[in-house]
Design a protein around this nucleic acid. Structure first.
Length: 469
DNA sequence: CTATGGCACGGATT
DNA sequence: AATCCGTGCCATAG
């Protein structure tokens, strides 16, 4: 073997490592870009257009949904299903991933197609029929994101019971952006409040204000409002600022983030999850269904024609072609490795965090990347890369960074929140610390303060005592 | 005097 | 090696 060839080989193997690492740390949209560019520059690569059902492994029809495949394919065990999914747009409407680069700023739901965006989030939960209903509803949104038809109309149109339409409608409103598809600002706000209640503390009276006093609220007549609701002016003002800061009566006008948001907390809003977790309620047991999104609908492979062409090629062009071939197979391998790692990672994470995924923040187990890396027998940095910049969508529609699965204090914080919610008088940090220790969480008084800050909970003397009627 | 927020240090995590 | 996080000490506000 010639030294130059040796060198190129070695070069290739180190490149292999490097590329695997970079691929691993890419999020879906970045990965898609990468694949596209590789595909267009390297003639040795080709894509085999093919979609297989992830569960039953049968090829899918070119079009049409198969989120949870319709062939009942029972593999019963309690283990979560984890698989690599081909591309997430079950409803492909043309190719929305054209060359329209990121030049015109980050993609917001505004320049995406809102109906499609929302639809993608809910298809997993429903059968074909309900999906159609969802699509129908979403098409009939106005520019503010409100539903401009009555639910009954939809029910008549599809000839299904109203309750079914209502279920779909609920799912839509709970998708991102929260409250989309509501029939009026009030409904949107209520949905948002409901969703916030799951994760954070909503000050007293907020709900009541929205329910009873929308018009007064919009006219800033706080004192009247206070009288009417039998609350203090302070409480009403608190509620009002909360509404202004955290809620959005017009869900589709997505100028939601980036305002007075404190530096801590509040994950950036990810619009494209790398992993989607849903529950399959297969009769008896809730089984988790995890898909790692792959921005491809087919298999990447070496073009066999290209191999042949090499043999008949001229001597001088041969070298270049060989390099291309090397690069192509390298890329494919790296991609496989990435998928493999992601798969194992998710398998592990989902298994240990099942409770959290199903039942909320309180059940998050404080796990570290180091721990996972030991389980999987890979280097810590591998896990770090795999976790970084990724987003996962939970069954309830929330999209959170994958890193939150490794939050060391989220569980304590939520316990703290519930304590504060339930104790009738404002407790000082010291008292809270004591209570937490009783629950089995050893935290110093100072730390309680930090957690409070993270959750944007006001200090005791500014907290209004809980409503008592 | 008590309750909190700020700063900074040390150990864990990445 | 760089960063994050819990915690202690101290100053300040109520």
């Amino acid at each position: 073997m010639l030294p130059s060839q040796m060198q190129s080989l070695r070069h290739v193997t180190t490149a292999h490592l490097a590329q695997t690492m970079t691929l691993l740390s890419l999020a879906v949209d970045e990965l898609r870009q990468q694949i596209d560019s590789e595909l267009s520059t390297n003639p040795a690569l080709e894509m085999l257009e093919e979609r297989r059902c992830p569960v039953c492994q049968r090829p899918l029809p070119a079009k049409g949904p198969c989120p949870v495949c319709s062939c009942p394919n029972e593999v019963d065990s309690n283990d979560p299903i984890v698989y690599i999914s081909p591309r997430e747009d079950f409803y492909s409407k043309g190719d929305m991933f054209e060359d329209d680069d990121f030049k015109d700023g980050p993609s917001t739901p505004d320049n995406e197609d809102l109906p499609t965006y929302v639809l993608k989030q809910i298809v997993g939960e429903f059968d074909k029929n309900s999906q159609k209903i969802g699509a129908f509803l979403l098409v009939n949104l106005n520019e503010d994101g409100f539903l401009k038809i009555e639910l009954i109309e939809a029910a008549r149109y599809f000839n299904v019971p109203l309750s079914q339409v209502e279920r779909v409608h609920q799912a839509i409103m709970h998708a991102d952006p929260p409250g989309v598809g509501a029939r009026n600002p009030k409904e949107a706000l209520l949905v948002q409040i409901e969703m916030l209640e799951e994760t954070g503390i909503v000050p007293p009276f907020v709900k009541l204000v929205v329910e009873e006093g929308m018009d007064l609220l919009s006219r800033h007549q706080y004192s009247t409002l206070a009288k009417q609701l039998d609350a203090s002016l302070k409480q009403i003002k608190l509620a009002a600022t909360f509404i202004q800061d955290n809620l959005n009566p017009y869900p589709a006008r997505a100028h939601w983030g980036e305002q007075s948001h404190h530096p801590s907390d509040r994950s950036n809003v990810f619009h494209q999850p790398d992993v989607i977790i849903s529950v399959v309620n297969n009769g008896k047991e809730n089984r988790l269904f995890v898909e790692v999104i792959l921005p491809l609908c087919g298999t990447l492979q070496i073009n066999p024609m290209f191999r042949q062409a090499i043999r008949g090629a001229e001597e001088d062009s041969r070298y270049d072609m060989k390099m291309d071939l090397e690069k192509a197979s390298l890329f494919v391998k790296c991609l496989q490795q990435r998928n493999h790692t992601m798969l194992r990672l998710m398998q592990q994470v989902v298994t240990t965090q099942k409770e959290f995924i199903l039942h909320g923040d309180k059940h998050l187990k404080p796990i570290t990347r180091a721990h996972i890396s030991k389980e999987l027998e890979v280097h810590e940095s591998t896990i770090s890369r795999a976790v970084a910049n990724k987003a996962v969508q939970l069954p309830n529609g929330r999209i959170i960074p994958l890193a939150s699965f490794f939050d060391r204090s989220l569980n304590i914080r939520t316990v703290l929140k519930t304590i504060i919610e339930n104790e009738p008088r404002p407790l000082s940090d010291t008292e809270l610390s004591g209570l937490l220790v009783k629950e089995g969480f050893e935290v110093a008084r100072r730390t309680v303060a930090k957690y409070r800050a993270m959750e944007r909970i006001l200090p005791a003397h500014l907290r209004t005592s809980v409503v008592r009627k």
